[in-house]
């Protein structure tokens, strides 16, 4: 959040959504990495990539490292760009599984579509972060004295009670009892 954490203050941006997205990608990276490290055989089987279990586990380690980098760093921008590069590597590796007589080509296609979707998010996040100012934010302006009431808020509270709300701006009379404290506890049903 803009002024609430040292991290975003240092990057100097007002867009908390991108910061949240970056953190989300970090968590996703770790989760995917754990899956790749823990179950490389299952993944290789599902993608028809038997014999490449070691490579998948290696990619898992990469994902975990990137995720930790995103979550732990003061500025995740280079780590998100690292994810973009990793996405490219993943897509290239998956593309090799489309060749030949791989019976799991359908699964490979789904996996590639998923990676492409995540890549789009990674690129968006990395570009947005890169556009943000690397300079620290100036100190927050203090507007606590900007009351707008020259005579003080106590004097001004209700000062316009003399104003008569025009007829066409009034709350419909039929509605009025329902919003006021003197409203009947059990209004008579109308139907």
């Amino acid at each position: 959040m803009r002024y609430e954490t040292e991290r975003t203050r240092r990057r100097g941006h007002a867009d908390t959504a991108t910061d949240t997205l970056a953190r989300g990608l970090g968590i996703f990276s770790i989760a995917l990495g754990i899956a790749e490290v823990v179950a490389p055989r299952a993944l290789a089987r599902a993608l028809g990539m038997k014999g490449q279990e070691g490579l998948i586990a290696g990619y898992g380690v990469r994902e975990i490292a990137t995720g930790i980098g995103i979550l732990a760093s003061k500025d995740p921008t280079p780590w998100i760009w690292g994810r973009v590069a990793g996405d490219g590597l993943d897509l290239a590796t998956l593309a090799t599984a489309l060749e030949g007589r791989n019976p799991k080509k359908g699964n490979v296609g789904i996996a590639m579509a998923a990676v492409a979707g995540v890549t789009a998010l990674d690129v968006y996040c990395a570009q947005t972060l890169s556009r943000e100012s690397p300079h620290p934010l100036p100190p927050m302006q203090d507007y606590s004295d900007r009351t707008g009431y020259p005579r003080g808020i106590e004097q001004s509270h209700g000062a316009a009670k003399d104003f008569e709300v025009p007829r066409d701006f009034r709350t419909p009379e039929a509605m009025r009892p329902y919003t006021q404290p003197q409203a009947p506890q059990r209004p008579t049903p109308s139907m």
């Binding site: 927050m140 507007y143 606590s144 900007r146």
Partner: peptide, 11 residues
């Protein structure tokens, strides 16, 4: 934050 600050100043 600045807008919230000014809003608080206004009551």
């Amino acid at each position: 934050p600045e807008r919230l600050d000014m809003a608080r100043a206004g009551g």
